[in-house]
Nucleic acid binder design. Structure first.
Length: 692
DNA sequence: GGACGCTGTCATCTT
DNA sequence: ATAAGATGACAGCGT
């Protein structure tokens, strides 16, 4: 494919915090009434705002402002819009966070509908409203089981989405509009509807995931995560692994100091699951009193942000495979105003706080204990990533993909690394957070620690009882490891367990090394083969060159032989005696042709005289073609007038079968190797002849 | 649904 | 004697 060399590459730098910064500045301006160019009147209450912001968030405002070009306009909203519903929306427009309560969610929803507020999908309300108002239903059982049931029905999502998207299920599922939904429907209908269409929701969610995220990479950590969840007991078990995945890619977005919220309100974990997230990502050790299994597990597992996210097929208790999807919403409970808690929905495109900002907060935990069961459930279900079960907005994940590059997001960046290597920053934090900083094994051991394996470890309750992380178990040197064990009072079972974890971890690394060595070995062998081929080619070329040179030498020698014989004027008898002890390839035969009477001999001689045939013979002999071992006769013996017995000399290769096979002039001489040709020197011959 | 590659784990041997 | 490393074999999972 031809490449347009003239076209220069285009690089894009995209700041993940810029939009957040701009929005925050706008919000600050709004709060200070700076540069505000519109006053929105709702129920006799005025709100100052920027037209551009409102117009970008609301179809209603967009239409209104387009018809009012002048600045300083005052807009009165319809009666359907209440302060209770509009104020959170205004805040959402400036902060991307929608604060809502059980009391105002219906108002908000109504305002969203009237004002055509964007980026607030009905699915949010479709779930929340029934949850809030369905007080009769058991709030603790349904979501979990439903979730599992739904997800069990999900096949491999990546391939099936488009197919299933055409299913009748999808066609029959319609989001419920607030206008048409009566209270009963609001309370139960949506939820049940969701339950009736699990495939659709699963598939949609999977499309979101698979469209934007390398699914295989995400899958890497599902097993680990699930095991960790199960290891951490019912508190965690009630929360599917989804939230970690759902939230983390977003919460892992780059986060700088100035991206924190102006209110500086601490993020309060909604459930143990968020506590899990918090402690897992922050890599800080909570105080010992904070003994929830979730945090403990996260701490024990040394969960990095990247490790806590992802999607993977895992086995659940009954052996069935459960497929969970990622989503893009990070729900969190936030103490907004004093004792009042509100759910805060953060959209994915908001560069929210990074994982490292999710600090465990004991105070918030205490507050969490006072939550109502419904709120708990809602928060929990949010944590489960209900977005993926409902019609998860596709654009959220698109935003994720478009707005974040792998470098920006530690999670994505981490996934790109080998295994689940923890980013340096986290490694540092981990070390700092550890009371006893230990030396890491140098070399390969320290570079490939991950937590993908050790599923049994995470699956075990024992893991939560250990005061150190599996990473440390595996990464410590032998001495450090033993030192650490000495400082801990572990039971025999725990010791065995720790050793087992360490053994497997070490073995895992060793296996990687072994495989790498194998691959290197294969590569080296391939290189060696290539080298030998090159050498063979070189040697073959050299051999051909030598053959040519040898042929020329033989021809020159033949000429000289003939000249000497002629000048010596040997008698025929002498010539015959000479020929008797001469090798068949000897140029001497050329002189004997008139003396030979048999046809066979003539043929041999004619062949011997043929330079081409001789060259062929030479080549064949060099190539090591089969044939009888030749016997060369020393020239002095040959020229000795037959008085010496022919004696075998070094075999110099077979006589060229095509030329001389079985055709020796005499039975005693046999063939001659080509080597003999080069060893023949005309001087002795002429000398002998002259002597005679 | 099977082939294939990758990876973790186990058993066994060696260091 | 013990721990650690190396490696073949196997299984699970994703493509």
């Amino acid at each position: 494919m031809p490449v347009d060399s003239a076209r220069s590459s285009v690089f894009t730098y995209q700041s993940a915090v810029h939009s957040d910064h701009v929005l925050r500045c706008l919000d600050e301006q709004r709060l200070r009434d700076m540069l505000c160019d519109v006053t929105v009147v709702v129920e006799s209450r005025s709100f100052r705002a920027h037209r551009s912001v409102l117009a970008s968030c609301s179809d209603y405002f967009s239409a209104r402002f387009s018809s009012h070009g002048e600045a300083g306009v005052v807009i009165s909203l319809p009666d359907e819009v209440t302060v209770e519903g509009f104020e959170p929306l205004l805040q959402f427009a400036y902060t991307t966070k929608l604060l809502f309560t059980k009391e105002n969610i219906l108002e908000i929803r109504s305002c969203v509908s009237v004002l055509g507020f964007k980026n607030l999908d009905n699915s949010c309300f479709d779930f929340l409203i029934p949850k809030f108002f369905d007080s009769s239903k058991n709030a603790t059982t349904t979501p979990r089981k439903t979730c599992c049931r739904m997800k069990k029905k999900c096949p491999k999502p990546a391939k099936d989405f488009f197919a299933s998207n055409t299913d009748s299920d999808v066609d029959t599922y319609k989001p419920i509009s607030p206008a048409t939904m009566d209270e009963e429907e609001q309370q139960t209908g949506t939820a049940s509807r969701l339950l009736d269409h699990p495939q659709q929701s699963c598939d949609e969610a999977s499309l979101d995931v698979n469209t934007q995220i390398d699914y295989s990479l995400l899958c890497k950590y599902r097993k680990f995560q699930m095991a960790c969840l199960e290891a951490c007991g019912p508190e965690m078990a009630s929360m599917s692994p989804a939230p970690a995945e759902d939230s983390c890619p977003l919460s892992c977005m780059p986060h700088t100091k100035d991206s924190e919220e102006p209110t500086s309100s601490k993020h309060i974990p909604v459930t143990e699951g968020f506590d899990f997230l918090a402690s897992s990502s922050s890599q800080t050790k909570p105080p010992p009193s904070q003994g929830s299994k979730a945090s403990c597990c996260a701490q024990m597992c040394g969960l990095s942000c990247g490790e806590s996210v992802g999607s993977k097929k895992v086995k659940i208790e009954d052996g069935a495979e459960e497929l969970l999807e990622t989503s893009s919403v990070k729900p969190e409970l936030k103490n907004v105003s004093g004792d009042r808690e509100k759910l805060v929905l953060m959209e994915s495109h908001t560069p929210g706080p990074s994982c490292s900002d999710w600090q465990p907060d004991t105070e918030s935990e205490q507050m969490g204990a006072e939550r109502s069961s419904i709120e708990q459930e809602v928060a929990e279900h949010l944590a489960k990533g209900f977005w993926s079960e409902t019609s998860a907005p596709l654009h959220w994940l698109k935003q994720l993909d478009q707005g974040i590059n792998n470098r920006d997001c530690p999670f994505l960046w981490d996934l790109g690394a080998v295994g689940a290597r923890v980013p340096d920053g986290e490694e540092t934090n981990r070390g700092q957070g550890s009371p006893d900083v230990s030396s890491q094994n140098s070399g390969e051991d320290s570079d490939s620690l991950d937590t993908e394996g050790d599923s049994e470890f995470y699956n075990s309750e024992k893991a939560c009882e250990l005061p150190f992380s599996v990473e440390r178990i595996a990464s410590l040197s032998r001495n450090d490891f033993q030192q650490m064990l000495k400082t801990q009072c572990l039971t025999r079972e725990q010791l065995d367990f720790v050793h087992d974890v360490r053994r497997r971890s070490k073995n895992r690394i060793a296996a990687r090394r072994c495989r790498k060595r194998k691959l290197d070995c294969i590569h080296n062998l391939e290189c060696e083969i290539e080298k030998l081929r090159t050498e063979k080619h070189k040697l073959t070329t050299e051999r051909d060159r030598l053959d040519q040179q040898r042929l020329k030498t033989w021809q020159r020698f033949s000429g000289l032989y003939e000249k000497v014989c002629c000048e010596a004027a040997l008698r025929p008898e002498q010539l015959q005696v000479l020929a008797k002890y001469s090798p068949s390839a000897c140029p001497l035969f050329a002189l004997l042709s008139p003396l030979k009477s048999t046809s066979a001999q003539s043929q041999v001689l004619s062949e011997a005289q043929d330079p081409a045939a001789m060259a062929c013979a030479l080549a064949d002999s060099q190539a090591g073609s089969c044939g009888e071992p030749s016997i060369s006769v020393p020239m002095d013996a040959v020229l000795g007038g037959g008085q010496t017995t022919p004696q075998a000399l070094v075999p110099l290769g077979p006589t060229p079968t095509s030329t001389f096979s079985g055709r020796s002039l005499t039975s005693s001489t046999g063939g001659i190797g080509v080597g003999a040709l080069t060893s023949m020197r005309p001087e002795p011959v002429s000398k002998l002849i002259t002597d005679k």
